[in-house]
Write a protein that binds this DNA or RNA. Structure first.
Length: 626
RNA sequence: GCUCCUGUAGUAUAACUUGGAUAGAACGUGGGCUUGCGGAGCCUGAGAUCCGGGUUCAAAUCCCGGCAGGAGCGCCA
């Protein structure tokens, strides 16, 4: 769905190209020279600067010439050259009409772009170990993943939301050992309880060789198919994942499919994957001194090897150790062969949860079940913290070596920075996450929201709670997502509980105001956006708001291409600010003329729709009163 | 040692990928508004690109060299 803003930019590009060729010049580097202007018209073009050198004329001369040859552009009233720039002024009336019509078609949860039409993408997040509750670091992962998935949805991709569960790691073995041997009775939320066991056991391992040996033995037993320990391990992990999903649902985060490490092992994905690599002649069992007995992949065939690789000996990477155990990268290669359909019908699936709160079923890989068509994508996005960049790169290079550049290019690593507590890292081992779980954060934020909700509406208690929860989620999601992914976050309660300024609650407040205006007007929402007198909403404050509304598609496409949800938070803050300014500068319901009121109400509705749509991208409902 | 990431007002940040006109918003701060179509508001002032070179008509953005913080470079996950 083309946005009015997008249409104008395209129109301008065509007109400028036309003018340049009419002048007998060659157009070079037009792209990225057309964009929003601050204070010099509405949209400006700087192509004259690029042409200056080649034409041996001054930018001013060129811009003047282009401006004089420009043909008419849809929704553009005039164009004038100014010091080398060509500035375009929108025709406010027709642009407003187009924007309101466009806003009428914006629906939360519906695609606003066909950028990814027909393309399937799998997005993996948050993949928390199944032995502890989500802490605020996991939360950042989950929020990023959910937002990116929503954004891809809105761009027309077919999105598969996948969560990888590593139920065979050391962490799980430690928790399980505690579960079996410490004699504590599970109480409270299971993931939290299991996390506490984990902290106790990790501590004990440092002090007690016997415990360490016990955990080591347990680790190998849970990896062996059919043992009591492997069954119990999966059972306990499933119980933990169920509890973690309790948290996930509270945050409005859902998935389509869980993939278990134990199933990757059970379905022999690794053997199949290694077979593919061996057949392609890029990996083999080594017999040199260095890697004797290991199964090793050789990356020498890759055309452009990155510099970071020089740490590897001979550009080789061990996939299977001499003791027969696979490395992390090997498992990841196998897993991505499934994602991209190189190992078809690798798993069977069964139902993990019949009905998530969003109404959809959550499936899981499992021993017994039926084949389903998960995986088989052209693009895979992995939300993993920045520390994993090196293995992620090897993963991609392995597909390059395999001659599958398409797959290597299709793997995208969204590397995000860590969340730390003033100077302290959140590494699970030390248990420093205790007191900083996602559950606790939400609880505290809801408390604050509850105390701030106004009393004017006689809300029922359940409605009051619902609104408080949404406000709290708005606050949390905004604070996490408005920071660019690669930056670190230093967590503090003051930071997390921000309800002012460029915060989620502030933006919700603006939406609530707009909703109330529409409700109080008793206008017919269905017809409001059709045919208002747009000359009546052409003032500067109205127009600034209209320009922003007209860019929803462009913003979501930008956020998608760059995998940066903070593009959306920025946009939402701008929208909210522009609405606030409009609201304070002109009366709506108290407008003097009936037609004026109608036109302004249409603008209010257009704002509300674009706001609702944009909040939806962050996984947030818009609220009508607060 | 090598590689990568980060460095923007007092604080925490946006813009860097794709160079473009006056570096955008927020909190805090100085001054002002106020029974409002919802004050979780509005108006207004002061305040920033780590340092040094280079490329360019134009540099927060690109290149080189520093400085500071962090991470990565295993038959660890």
């Amino acid at each position: 769905m083309d946005s009015p803003y997008g249409i104008v930019v395209k129109g301008i590009a065509a007109a400028v190209t036309g003018a340049i060729s009419e002048l007998g010049w060659k157009e070079t580097g037009l792209s990225n020279t057309i964009g929003a202007s601050k204070g010099f018209g509405d949209i400006s073009c700087s192509v004259a600067f690029k042409l200056a050198k080649e034409l041996k004329k001054s930018p001013k001369e060129i811009a003047d010439a282009i401006a004089s040859k420009l043909g008419p552009v849809e929704m553009v009233a005039k164009a004038e050259a100014d010091g080398g720039y060509v500035n375009f002024y929108l025709d406010r009336k027709s642009f407003a009409a187009a924007t309101l019509g466009y806003a009428a078609r914006l629906e939360a949860g519906k695609a606003a772009s066909d950028l990814g039409k027909g393309l399937k993408v799998i997005i993996e997040y948050p993949s928390v170990n199944p032995n502890k509750p989500w802490h605020i670091g996991h939360l950042r992962n989950a929020l990023l993943g959910d937002a990116v998935a929503n954004i891809y949805d809105a761009c027309g991709y077919e999105v598969e939301r996948e969560d990888f569960i590593n139920d065979l790691g050391l962490q799980v073995a430690e928790s399980l050992w505690g579960y079996m041997n410490l004699g504590d009775k599970p109480e409270g939320k299971f993931d939290t309880w299991l996390g506490e066991e984990y902290v106790k056991v990790s501590k004990a391992i440092g002090e007690n060789a016997e415990t360490k040996a016990g955990v080591g033995k347990l680790l190998s037993l849970i990896e062996q198919d059919g043992t009591y320990e492997s069954k119990l391990g999966r059972e306990v992990s499933e119980k933990c994942v169920m509890a973690q999903y309790d948290t996930s649902f509270k945050y409005g985060i859902y998935h389509d499919v869980l993939v278990w490490e134990s199933d990757v092992l059970g379905y022999k994905l690794l053997e199949k994957a290694m077979g593919i690599l061996e057949k392609a002649n890029i990996a083999k069992k080594a017999d040199d001194q260095e890697y004797n007995g290991c199964f090793v992949i050789n990356l020498n065939e890759v055309k452009e090897l990155p510099k970071e690789l020089q740490g590897l000996k001979e550009n080789s990477k061990v996939l299977i150790r001499s003791d027969g155990n696979p490395t992390y990268v090997a498992k990841d290669i196998a897993f991505h062969m499934w994602k991209f359909g190189l190992i078809p019908s690798a798993f069977k699936y069964s139902v993990f949860l019949e009905r998530q709160p969003n109404g959809k079923t959550l499936y899981t890989t499992s021993k017994d079940g039926r084949p389903m068509d998960f995986g088989g994508v052209k693009k895979a996005i992995n939300i993993i913290d920045v520390k994993q960049s090196f293995p992620q790169m090897i993963l991609k290079l392995s597909f390059n070596a395999l001659g599958r550049d398409d797959i290597a290019d299709g793997i995208e690593h969204l590397a995000y920075g860590r969340v730390e507590l003033e100077g302290e890292s959140l590494a699970g081992r030390k248990g420093t996450w205790e007191g900083y779980t996602a559950d606790l954060l939400l609880e505290e934020t809801v408390k604050k929201a509850l105390s701030l909700i106004g009393t004017r509406f006689n809300l029922t208690e359940s409605e009051h709670n619902r609104i408080a929860r949404i406000i709290a989620l708005s606050a949390i999601k905004f604070e996490f997502l408005k920071i660019a992914p690669e930056k670190w976050i230093t967590f503090s309660w003051k930071w997390a509980l921000n309800f002012d300024g460029d915060s989620g609650p502030y933006c919700q407040y603006m939406h609530a105001r707009a909703s109330r205006l529409i409700e109080d007007s008793r206008a017919d929402v269905g017809s409001l956006l059709i045919g208002p007198d747009c000359t009546l909403i052409s003032g500067d404050n109205e127009f600034r708001l209209l320009k922003l509304i007209s860019q929803a598609t462009d913003m979501v496409e930008k956020a998608c291409k760059e995998m940066r949800p903070n593009v959306i938070t920025d946009y939402i803050v701008d929208l909210a600010g522009a609405f606030g300014k409009f609201y304070d500068s002109v009366p709506v319901l108290k407008a003097k003329v009936e037609d004026e009121k109608k036109a302004r109400l249409a603008l209010v509705l257009g704002f509300a729709k674009s706001m609702k749509f944009s909040l939806g991208l962050l996984g947030l409902e818009a609220i009508d009163r607060m």
